[in-house]
Amino acid sequence: MSTTAGKQVAKKSGMRVFKPGEQLFNQNDHADSLFIIQKGQIRLYIPKGRGFVDLAILRAGEVIGEMGYFDEKAQRRSCSAAALVTTEVIEISYNAFGKTMEGLNPWFKTIINTLADRLRKTNAKVKELESNSVGRGTDGKVGEYVFFHTPDVTRFLSMFYLVMKTHAELKESKMEIHLSKLKFYMFDIFNLAEVKFEEFLRMCVENSFVELANDPDGFPKLIRVANIDQFRQMVVFFNTQRITEDSKKIIISSRCEKLLGAILNQFALAGVDKEKWQADISAILEDFASKNIRVSDEDIRDAVNCGFCEDILVDNGKLTSVIHYSKLKKVYPSIRMMNAVKRVNETKSSH
């Protein structure tokens, strides 16, 4: 008995559960089983340079890993697969699947093998041409991997804003639209990348730009937005950043972002609504220290350089800063989105 055959016999079929981020398999791993998704989402991707190229997101009812069965030359995984959320799958060994195939009518088996062969050749051609999201370096080297380019973010923000303004309904002071309608425009009409849209939506939810609520069927597919004008402002911000010289771009560190958010919260509690106002930086830093949040007065430097506030003043040991309130309040959501995009790019690049 060959080594491959031995592995197939040893492989058992059955239900498996994968945690978010857990790998089902990696590209070029030995393939000895296929998976039928029962619940959850599986991300398919190909390592590329220092990052990867996302291929698809598969959901309940879809099959993964079946092509390895038909690849007689080398039973290797053609891509990598990982769970996006807690995912349940039924794993079926190639040995068990082969016994089922043996029982099929010969002509039906021929059709399946032919379709599989054509799909395998198409996949190979796609991999040869694939260059999505990978920058070009010098001397033929692969540049730094970027999942979200600035035009990607601008495109998603623009389409999201336009679809919400056109088709969303006002309910309980929030704009609401069903995810299926939003996806119809994003994918079928504007042909945007589904994998990137899923990440964009997750990013919006995590940063409280968007809320998810249950639809009449009990699924979290209602998109709710409290301030749709924020998306228009973010479109303008990202488009301006795109055409601005690097030396003049707005760059705010994550720590500075936290500090600015605390300043705005301080003003909101005080009922401030003026062009300029003095922030009590000492009180904010004391609050951060009590929560073990690593932010110092030095972290305000980015905001000073970008014109959102003035240098910190010290008076009897108390730290204060004059804040350009109206300007900061308008741009702050865009700063949060910009840094959220940066974190996504860094995380995916490190993978």
Results as ranks from 00 to 15, higher is better:
119 L>C: 09
340 A>G: 07
184 F>V: 00
109 K>Y: 11
350 S>R: 04
180 S>C: 02
177 I>V: 12
222 L>F: 09
312 I>W: 11
116 A>N: 04
242 R>L: 14
263 I>C: 14
26 N>A: 10
226 A>C: 08
277 W>C: 13
13 S>W: 06
226 A>L: 06
28 N>K: 05
56 A>S: 13
131 S>D: 06
289 A>T: 01
277 W>G: 08
150 T>M: 12
56 A>V: 09
321 S>F: 08
351 H>T: 01
274 K>I: 10
224 R>G: 03
3 T>W: 10
206 E>Y: 05
193 A>D: 15
330 K>P: 08
108 F>N: 06
312 I>G: 08
207 N>S: 08
252 I>Q: 07
191 N>C: 09
305 N>M: 10
190 F>N: 00
338 M>N: 04
341 V>P: 03
30 H>Q: 14
194 E>H: 03
182 L>I: 07
4 T>N: 04
87 T>F: 14
41 Q>A: 14
137 G>R: 00
200 F>Q: 08
275 E>D: 12
214 N>K: 11
255 R>W: 09
219 F>S: 02
166 T>S: 13
193 A>G: 02
312 I>M: 11
183 K>Y: 14
319 L>Q: 01
186 M>H: 01
173 S>G: 01
249 K>A: 11
116 A>K: 00
306 C>Q: 10
108 F>W: 08
100 T>L: 15
210 V>S: 05
185 Y>R: 00
327 K>M: 15
47 P>G: 09
327 K>I: 15
219 F>V: 02
141 K>R: 04
244 T>Y: 06
306 C>Y: 05
188 D>E: 15
288 F>W: 11
146 V>M: 12
272 V>N: 01
180 S>G: 00
208 S>V: 00
66 E>V: 05
24 L>M: 07
96 A>R: 02
315 D>I: 11
61 G>R: 05
